[in-house]
Amino acid sequence: MDLIKKPKTKAQFSIQFAWIFILIAGAIILIFFISLVYKQKEISEIKLSATVLSQIETILTGAGLSPGTVNLIDMPETQMNFICDAEGFSEFSIKGTSLTKATPVQVVFAPDTVQGKRLITWALSWDTPFKVTNFLYLSDLNTKYILINPNYEVEKDFPEEFEPSIKSSLDGIQTKGLNKIRIVYFNSQPDMLPEQMQSRNLDVSAIQVTPGTVSFYKRTKDRQGFELEGSIPYIDMPSLYGAIFSQDLTFYECNMKKAFKHLNHVSEIYAARESSIEDYFLTHPTVQDCHIYYHNKIQDLVSDSANCSQDIRLCISSIDVGAIKDNQETLIRKSCPLIY
């Protein structure tokens, strides 16, 4: 009887042990392959985000090289975040990834977030009076621009691709499907907001444009009106459009400082170039006496732009390109080599 029992018990024991062994070994194999798959998935996602970031960077560079053009760019459903802060730190990133691209030099005016399947870019050349850089303006289809009593120049130049609303008041504005609204008041004070613009989910901001100055407003805590954030001068239309597209005063100021820094470098080169031309004609006189027409007015621009790159509020009114333009026109009339 014992002999019969023992083999039966042994068999049961060995079968159970075998199954336990199978389960453990199988689990180890499964865990190994599943972790491999997850690792590969992670790597693929990082690779895809890096590709998207790199392609967006290429698109932005390309858009920035074509001044006067508006581009509608289809892309994967993404949210891009833009930062340009008071310390001059500037970058953009894709939400949900740790990938970022620093933009220490590019002048990009954009809301803090741009999302959706379509990106709208507009580039304008910034000339003071010679070309310094291209300003790039970005937005998406979920952001609305409302221009209240704009002047003729803005009404004519503002691209239709951004679908601006040109109105005399905020009545009748539809907010369905929008994430952000930017209201631009020309020579009038910001109004109280209609009910549909008081939603917590809607980011509403405003700027007031008066000759030479732009004032930034943010929505009050009760979301019914606006309070002043600050005022800052602007010198020309490209910088005014920069104020329209910037998320806030800090963002605008940060980008303008970058622009003035670049102006400083370019004007230094033009100033040295003008000196070289003047020195050449001093030793190689011409019939027109070209050497007497080079007045080195660009040197003032070099120092003004250096000041503006530190604090644009103090210096922007001193930027005067009229003298340089007059000098240039004289050189054209005298058929002498031009300053720019």
Binding site: K131, V266, E268, I269, A272, R273, S276, L338
Partner: peptide
């Protein structure tokens, strides 16, 4: 603009201004 040729602010493509290069060396 640090290098590109221009005449009265009209940019010339595929051209680099030699006088700008002299100055750009130091500025850059």
């Amino acid at each position: 603009p640090e290098f590109q040729c221009s005449r009265d602010n009209i940019q010339e493509e595929n051209c680099i201004d030699m006088l700008k290069l002299d100055a750009a060396e130091q500025v850059i």
